[in-house]
Structure formats: structure tokens, C-alpha cells
Amino acid sequence: MERQHTDTAESLYAVIERSAAVLGVPCRRDRVMPILTIYGDALAHAVIAFRVATGRDGSGDFDCRFTVPLDADPYQLAVANGLLAPTAHPITGLLPDVREHCPVDSYGIDFGIVGGFKKVWLVLPRGDLQSVSGLAGLASMPASLGGNLDFFARHGLGDTVGLLGVDYRKRTVNIYFGEPPAGGFSPQVVRSMLAETGQAEPSPQMLALGRQAFGIYVTLNWDSPKVERICLAVATADPTELPVPLDPRVRLFVDHVRASESNTRFVYAVASQPDGEYYKLQSYYRWQAEVADIMQLSDGALADPV
């Protein structure tokens, strides 16, 4: 069994190394393999995805994320194996707090081949999404979630959550709304959300993606009452057919992926910032049936995604 885990990690490392070379991102075996081997029990059956991003925080890295089972605490494993330093910050209480009060379907982890271990994902059951107000009542949750309930309601983000991403390096949490409005978000709504949260004026590309968005998430932290960032995501089987130009770095990665696997699914997302927006593309190296549930996609969303 140990040999099988090693072989799976080695195979995934080889794919990461090739992709990093295409993007010009340095890939060091001594940084990547420890993460893959620590969570090796999960890799043989995990959903595995890669992410490339633009902007100052993402342009020099290449991310890998994969699902892990519920029988181990992914944060504690990261700390125990030196991937994260211990801290007394309240972020450390969020995963156990959610787990104690809410059903959790699965976990995931996220790491950059340069930046190291970043996030733990908590996937909530599609048939048992949690209310935003209920999650806001958790003692470890940033107060800004409860403080922005009216904002979420006024802009139609929905009143349930299907996924949380806990970023231990940036000390933020992403709240993925489970039931955004059918038909995406109008330009008027996108402009209003960004203006109210102090973000930059959206580009025509962001407005176009907002109309097709299947999902939206906000980023919150423990030090501010404001919404730090808003992200809109579009599911697609071919990013080149989206009604927006792709960033050259993103297009390079799309071409690389499609050259080896033409049926790969993608999620293309745009995230707001006070000084402008940036883009993220996620490709699924290994797709499982439960991905649609993780992404809270409606039936057929990827059959005719755009």
C-alpha cells in the first residue's frame, strides 16, 4: 500500500513539474513531494485540480488542490509535518468549529509549488447547505460575515453556503454561496457590489463573466468589517470560447492542458481588488462525479457551460 501511495505521488509530481516548466515557475522536488506524500492516502481516489492566476500574488506560482477524506484533520497534519507554523490566531478554530456544528462532506487542501501549503477546503453536502446566518453565529467565524448579511441579501448572493476555503497563510476565509441567482449577475449588480466594498470599477470582461457566473464567493478576514474581495466564476469546457480575451499566461496553460486532454473541464474566475481585478483558471486533472456537487453546479452546467 505504501508503494502505491508513493507511485501516485510520483506520477502527480511529474505532471506538476511539466506544467510548471510550461509556465516558467520553478518547481523544487523538496518542496512539493513532502506535501504529496503527507496526504498520499488520498491521492489515488482524489479529485485533483490545478490553478494558474494573474496578478501580483499569483503570477509567480502554480497551485495544486485535491480532496482528502474526513478521517484525518488536514490542518493538524500540515502543522504536525512542518507545512504550517503553529499559531494562536482564531483561524485555527474555524475548521473544528464548522465540523462540530455542520455536516461536512469532504475536505480539500490547496498548495502552491512556490508558496507552499495554503488552504483547507470544507465541502458541505449539496443536500444540506448551511445558512449564512447560521455560519455567522460560529464563535470562530470572522465577525464580518454576520456584519454583511444585509449586503449579501440586497445583492442576491443567496442565503446558503456550500463551500468554505480557509487560507492559513493569508488568514482569510472564502465563503462560497450555494445558490446564486439563475442567469448570473447583471452589470448593475456587479458595479454596485464592488462600489460598496471599495473595489475598483469592473472591466467589461468582468461584467461579461458576471452574466454567466455559476458561482460567487467573498473573502473575509478577522481584522476588518469589510468584504475584502469578491470573485465570480464561470464553468466551461473550453475557455477559449468565453466572450472575453484570456490573459496570455492563462492561454498558455489552457493550450498545454488541452494538448494532452481535450475533455478537461475548467473554471475561469475573476476576482476584485481595490486596485483592479485579476483572473484565475482551474483545470481538473482528475474529475469525479462529485465535482458537480462540490462546485454546486446544476445538472448539465458543464455539458453546455457557456
Rank of each mutant, 00 (worst) to 15 (best):
P69R: 06
I216H: 06
S59N: 14
I16S: 05
A72I: 15
S131I: 09
R265A: 13
R51T: 14
K226W: 02
D150L: 10
P69C: 05
E17C: 12
L70K: 12
F185A: 06
L70H: 08
V68H: 02
F151L: 04
Q130R: 12
V267G: 08
G156W: 02
F214V: 14
Y107M: 03
I91N: 07
V218I: 05
D105V: 08
L43C: 04
K226R: 10
Y13R: 06
S224W: 00
V22Y: 01
L94Y: 05
L138E: 03
W121C: 06
A139P: 02
Q296E: 09
A301M: 11
Y75M: 12
L220C: 01
H101N: 12
F62S: 06
C102H: 13
V132F: 01
D63G: 07
F253Q: 07
F253W: 15
F177S: 06
T67F: 00
K119C: 11
A80M: 15
Q296K: 14
L124A: 02
D247G: 07
S133I: 11
P305F: 00
D167T: 03
A9M: 05
F266K: 13
R154M: 03
V25E: 01
G40D: 00
S140H: 05
A78T: 12
V306F: 10
G108N: 13
T87C: 09
N81I: 15
L242I: 09
P103D: 02
F152L: 03
G146Q: 02
F66W: 15
H101T: 12
V47I: 13
A153W: 07
L149P: 08
D71I: 14
P225I: 04
I230W: 01
L246P: 04
A200E: 08
F62W: 08
R28T: 08
A237G: 12
T219H: 03
Y278M: 03
F185K: 05
E196N: 01
L232W: 13
Y217R: 08
I48N: 01
S262R: 15
A143F: 08
D7K: 02
M1G: 03
T87E: 06
G165N: 04
D275G: 13
W287E: 10
Y268T: 07
S106T: 11
Q212V: 14
V47H: 07
T172P: 00
T6R: 11
A213E: 07
K280E: 15
V267K: 14
A9F: 01
V114K: 08
P245A: 05
L207V: 13
F266T: 11
